[in-house]
Amino acid sequence: MLQQIIQILPQVIIDGLTLGFVYAVVAIGYTMVYGILELINFAHGDVFMTGSFIGAAVLFFMMSVGFLSSLPSLIVFIIVMAITAIVTGLMGVGIERVAYRPLRKRNAPKLIALITSIGISFVLEDVVRFFAELKTGNYIITSPPLFNQKMTLDIHSVMPVFNKITFQSSFILVFIVTIIMLIALDIFVNRTKWGMAMRAVAQDRETASLMSINVNRVISITFFVGSALGGATGVLFMIQYGTIDPYIGFILGIKAFTAAVLGGIGNIRGAMLGGILLGLLEMFAAANLSTITHGAMGAEYKDVFAFIILILVLIFKPEGLFGKAVVEKV
């Protein structure tokens, strides 16, 4: 049994990293908003989903115009990513304006903000479903092939304990792009003036506003950055996994939130690590659960696995693996 697990380990790591990077970037959106507003933005998973659909739409458009065959696919990819990121970023700003800012002004209880965010996520899901179904007749969409050459890394011949690994070329793309996004974000938050303002607002909103920081604008920028990253990751998801539907955002959103909690909510680097860790754990579970339990539990329990991690972390270490404990004050 152990040998079997070790054999497929490299493949599991590759798949887990791919999924983990997706979780990591989406988790950042949750963690940034939570850090600043102490609000679980339920709509974020659906912003990710909308991003993947916008990406698909742009890609289909470019295909119909003929760009896809005439331009190198890397340039097409960059254009798609840029358009999607800007659109979803603006969408995030809009969501904050419509759904959260009025509540913040009124000082409404947190419960109400949670409820509006659930409402927004439902509206997004249905609007996307409507357009997808209107255009294609089916809400499940298969993306046009891009970066789907199969690659094989024959480590079996070097280290016979392992099996061969196969992956799509899009894996490399996901890997590189998410790392670029993560580093860029880290620099943005830690080195720039806006990033400093963001950290200040997260620390203490009122004092920050006394230090002549425009709190509302900082919140808007946070939503823009988080949603743009989420939307761009949606494009990566679409290219990597091929099929998308309007309901992918829900489960993926919860898992990304789990990742954010795992890394300590409000902590951006923690969210990155939490995402990667969760992706690896989940893939490991999906691949080996059936072997470990002798067929009693199959890969269909991988979602349960992620939720159990969430519940365990929240109960035993609610501050996360990399966060600080917060004391609730009166």
Binding site: A99, I118, G119, I120, F122, V123, F130
Partner: peptide
């Protein structure tokens, strides 16, 4: 359904 529920939630919460 989802759209209607979503709008109801948002409008009533706000």
């Amino acid at each position: 359904q989802r759209l209607i529920f979503g709008i109801l939630l948002i409008v009533f919460a706000l």
